[in-house]
């Protein structure tokens, strides 16, 4: 469904990504594991078009999307949930969802605010509250719900567990599992192996802008050597 080949990216003179290669199959939950600065976020940003890749190919549903604008890519059915949540703080929950709304897409569930309130009951209680007056956990749910309003075929989730309390992180993992059951395809970035173990089918380990290792999640958890070498756990 999504293929990345030889992806390079630079910020100014700094080389951030060097030849990233990865694929995501339909219905899969794939995790990019690595430390801060390894290039996880930049990989996701390059896919959605927020960072212009300096080389490489990105194919989504058979179309080359490298170098196209974020809005064009998003309208092909690629959803993006940023690390910093980036809720529109002045807009209400309802309005935040409205910004994310896109036309129904063939072959994927059609999301409405009502369906999302059912998935995230907390949000239903605060439809008219400005985004700025929500807690971190509530904002994290809103930012996912907002992206789902675009009826995506695949979502990119950037560090969904960062800065959240353990209980909320568990709820986040449950929500991702629920989406997966409905057939959603997910590519997420994480630092927490615990979280990755709970949600992902397959993992890529990224370090200094390169993919160092690829494995099924079960295999990775069993491979003490790789975990020690790349993740130090």
């Amino acid at each position: 469904m999504l293929t990345v080949q030889g992806l390079d990216a630079h910020y100014g003179l700094a080389h951030i990504l060097a030849g990233i290669e990865l694929t995501v199959q339909r219905g899969e939950v794939v995790v990019l594991l690595g430390r801060n600065g390894a290039g996880k976020s930049t990989t996701l940003k390059s896919i959605i078009g927020l960072v212009r890749p300096s080389a490489g190919q990105i194919t989504f549903e058979g179309q080359g999307i490298a170098g196209r604008s974020p809005s064009t890519i998003a309208r092909l059915g690629l959803g993006y949930v940023p690390e910093e949540r980036r809720i529109f703080t002045e807009l209400t929950v309802r309005e935040n969802l409205e910004v994310g709304r896109q036309k129904p897409r063939q072959g994927v569930p059609h999301w409405t605010p009502e369906k999302l309130y059912a998935l995230f009951p907390n949000l239903a209680e605060m439809k008219d509250r400005p985004g700025g007056r929500m807690s971190g956990g509530e904002q994290q749910m809103l930012t996912i719900a907002r992206t789902l309003m675009g009826n995506p075929r695949l979502i990119l989730l950037d560090e969904p567990s960062e800065g959240l309390s353990p209980l909320i992180v568990e709820q986040m993992a449950d929500a991702i599992a629920a989406l997966k059951r409905d057939g959603m395809t997910v590519l997420l970035s994480e630092q927490s192996l615990h979280f990755a173990a709970r949600v992902a089918d397959r993992a890529y380990i990224i370090e200094k802008g390169r993919i160092r290792h690829e494995a099924g999640m079960t295999a990775l958890l069993a491979d003490a050597d790789v975990r020690q070498r790349y993740l130090a756990v």
Binding site: S165, P166, L167, E170, A173, S192, H194, F195, R198, L221
Partner: peptide, 14 residues
Amino acid sequence: AIYLGSGAMYGEGH
């Protein structure tokens, strides 16, 4: 109940 949850997200939980 309010914060730590089941403990699956840290320590030897997995």
